[in-house]
């Protein structure tokens, strides 16, 4: 593949100078070594240094460069340039449902507040032993598909329930984290965790729309985790 020119339409808003947001049309030439959308965006920024976006690891583990790409949430560093159809501009917008600070940078306070609300840490009130707490490989396996979350917010910001109630609904990312601790055999706070979630908003705003599953760049399944939380609640209630 040789050099080619990519057309972009990018959501721009700088509260310091713009009255309201607008879409900027801009083109950039990429080389065959530029594989990912983030590579192209770095070139874009060299052309116009006022385009603001977050990025760090550029390999899909830090979760910085989540954005809305052609209408779908994803990470720029994991989005192949070859997936974009020729002749159509690539439309980049900030993650939906969160306040925009500037351009593609959103204010994630609400998202992290929900994550923090589920007590995202191991609770075990026994005195720590001198060695590790034992856990069988099978019990450890239960954490797979849960602990890998990178907190990029692709899922929660694609969830209509989170759009309507970001202040009250924990959202898929937070609920996935909640189940990560419920599922951990070393954690002793299962019933408090379930109490904390038994609420028409915090957990039960999830209507199994499953946008979160489609949006997750790490291939995780928050809906499944939420289902397991509900299962546990039923099991303890009946």
């Amino acid at each position: 593949m040789s050099n080619r020119t990519l057309q972009f339409k990018i959501y721009r808003y700088d509260p310091d100078k713009d009255q309201k947001p607008y879409m900027q049309e801009i083109a950039v030439e990429v080389e065959s070594t530029d594989r990912k959308l983030l590579d192209a965006m770095v070139k874009l920024k060299a052309k116009d240094d006022s385009i603001a976006f977050r990025r760090s690891c550029r390999e899909g583990v830090c979760g910085s460069d989540a954005m809305n790409i052609n209408g779908r949430n994803g990470l720029a560093c994991l989005t192949d340039l070859t997936t974009f159809p020729e002749g159509k501009p690539i439309v980049l917008r900030p993650l939906p449902g969160l306040p925009v600070i500037r351009d593609l940078i959103v204010d994630m306070t609400q998202f992290f507040k929900q994550y923090h609300s589920i007590k995202p840490y191991l609770i075990n009130n026994d005195p720590p032993p001198e060695t590790e707490r034992l856990q069988s490989p099978e019990d450890r396996e239960e954490l797979n598909g849960l602990y890998e979350c990178i907190l990029c917010a692709c899922c929660s910001t694609s969830c209509p329930s989170f759009w309507w109630n970001p202040d009250k609904f924990v959202g898929p990312a937070g609920l996935l984290a909640a189940y990560r601790f419920i599922a951990d055999t070393r954690d002793q706070a299962t019933s408090e965790r379930l109490d904390n979630l038994e609420d028409p908003y915090r957990l039960f705003r999830c209507h199994t729309i499953m946008n979160c599953v489609e949006a997750c760049p790490k291939g995780l399944n928050p809906t499944k985790a939420i289902g397991k939380i509900k299962d546990m609640m039923v099991r303890r209630a009946v």
Binding site: T131, E132, L134, Q135, S136, P137, D139, R140, Y147, D184
Partner: peptide, 18 residues
């Protein structure tokens, strides 16, 4: 060991150790 106590999900051996 401290990290394990913080909750880090280490892989396990068959005997349940790190």
């Amino acid at each position: 060991i401290e990290l394990e106590h913080y909750g880090m999900p280490f892989d396990r051996t068959d005997s349940g150790r790190i």
